[in-house]
Every structure is written in C-alpha cells, then in structure tokens.
Computed example of a mutant assay.
Amino acid sequence: MLGLLSIDECLQTDGLYPGVFAPLEVISPHIFQLWKTRQTDKQIVQNLWNHYDTSHYGLGLMKFVQIQVGMGLLHTWQQSHTVESIGDAMIDLQEIYPNAGAQEMVSLLFHERAMSVSRNIVMAYFTKYEVDLVRQCKACRLWRKWFWAAGVNDLFAVNQHNKWLRFGLALHTGIELFSGCIMWMQELGHMPMVTQSDPGSENFSITNAHTMLHQWHDPTLQGTLQHCWM
C-alpha cells in the first residue's frame, strides 16, 4: 500500500492513513532497537514499516519524533552534554575500562549509560582530566598482551585494510582468533560472544550491530557492550 505514495510523501504525511498511527506497544520495542544502532530518524521510520500493518496505520517523521522524545531517546544535540555533565559517568566507566580511548568511550557512554555524547566533548574531557592518557595514546605505543578465548567462535578480531584503495579495493576482514581462520560473520549462521577491533571508524557499525543483536536475543545484556576495543 505504501507504494501508492512516494517514500518522502509517506514520511511527511503519515502514509495512507494520516492521524491513524501505528500502535505504540507494537513499534516501541523496535524503535528502541533501531535507535541503538544509531540510525537516522528517516531510516528508523522506514524500517518500522516492516513491523506494523501499513494498510491500516501510518507513521511520519513528525509523529515519530514526538514518540521518540516521549521515550527519552534523544539525539546528541538534544542531550547537550558538556565536559561537566559526563564527569560522573566517565569516572565510573574509566574504572572498568581504564585504557578506553575517545571513540571507545563514546560507544560505552551510549550503550552502557544511554548517553549520546559527541567525540569532541569526550576529547575535551580527556584533555582536561586525563593528560597522561592522551599523551600515551598519541605516542601510539604497542604492547604485547596475552588474551584468552574459550574456544572456536568465542572471539573474532576485525579490521579494515585500506592500502589497496587506490585500486578501488578495501578489505574488511574478520578472523576467528582461536583457529586463525579468516571468515565473514554473515556466512556462519551464528554469532561470536565478543568481537574485537581497533577503534577505527570502519568498525563502529560492527560494534553497534553485534551489540544490538546480542541484546535482542538476550535482554539481560542491555547496558553492556559486546565488543572489545584494542
């Protein structure tokens, strides 16, 4: 039925049935899960069409924003965090993750404290309160460490190799560390317990998606991050 209107028309007019909104009890769990993946409002509204009867209900951007705010799911600019407002959460998280960098801390704040904070604010916090940690990160020191895996498929390490980009080829690979086997997650039919990567931006989507999928299957994992930043 949505095909009778363009996507933009559906987003702006609540679809074919303006004023007859999708039941909140049906869509609110999906809104939360999609928000955790950091999709845009437009993307969430479009994905929600798969979870309610679009032949009877509609949902546009304006109504969705009202629902989202009512659920307390605010974007970074709406939460308006400052160096001071994230202080307590940063102290608590640093006790658990003492070597977490700025991007990892952004992810931890979002998944474990439901705080959407810009990287610039976290960097400003580190610059003000963690001078030694910033100096150590800038030194790019590599430390040899032992890690333990419970067995096959317990831990995947992922990273992107961009040295062939001039040929139009970027390799984003996952390695099963226990066996050393190179594989792709989507080919397995199951998930590892934890993924691991450096804090490169190419790995953020894997972190968010992997954490969301685990929380989807096990609600007791809400507020945790199923990824290990190196």
Rank of each mutant, 00 (worst) to 15 (best):
L61H: 06
N47T: 04
K36M: 12
H56M: 13
K36P: 07
Y52L: 07
T40N: 06
N47S: 12
D53R: 01
K63S: 11
Q46R: 13
N50M: 10
D41T: 10
D41H: 09
V45A: 05
N50V: 09
N50R: 12
Q39D: 14
V45K: 04
K42Y: 01
Y52V: 03
Q46V: 12
R38C: 14
L59C: 02
I44S: 02
W49T: 03
T37Y: 12
V65K: 13
N50I: 11
V65W: 02
H56W: 00
G58P: 12
L61T: 08
I44K: 05
Q66K: 14
L48K: 00
L61P: 02
K42V: 09
H56C: 13
L48W: 00
Q43K: 13
S55L: 05
Y57P: 08
N47V: 00
K36H: 14
Q39G: 14
D53S: 05
K63C: 09
S55F: 07
N50F: 08
Q46E: 07
F64K: 01
R38A: 08
T54P: 00
T37C: 14
L61E: 10
G58S: 10
M62R: 11
W49P: 02
F64P: 01
R38F: 07
Q46H: 07
L59D: 04
V65S: 12
Q66T: 12
K36R: 15
Q66P: 00
W35H: 15
Q43H: 05
Y57R: 04
K42F: 00
Q46S: 06
T37P: 00
T37D: 13
Q39S: 10
T40D: 07
K36S: 14
T40S: 15
D41W: 01
H56P: 00
I44D: 11
H56V: 08
L59P: 02
K36T: 14
L59A: 02
L48G: 00
G60A: 07
D41N: 15
W49V: 01
D53Y: 03
N50Q: 13
D53N: 12
Q39C: 09
G60N: 03
N47D: 08
I44M: 06
Y57S: 04
T37I: 07
Q46L: 10
Q66I: 09
F64L: 01
W35S: 11
K42L: 07
G60L: 03
G58T: 05
V65M: 13
L61M: 12
T40E: 03
I44F: 06
D53F: 02
V45T: 00
D41C: 10
T40P: 03
Q66L: 12
R38H: 10
G60I: 06
S55C: 05
M62H: 13
V45E: 11
T37A: 13
G60H: 04
G58Y: 02
K63N: 10
N47P: 00
H56Q: 14
Y52D: 08
T40L: 05
M62I: 08
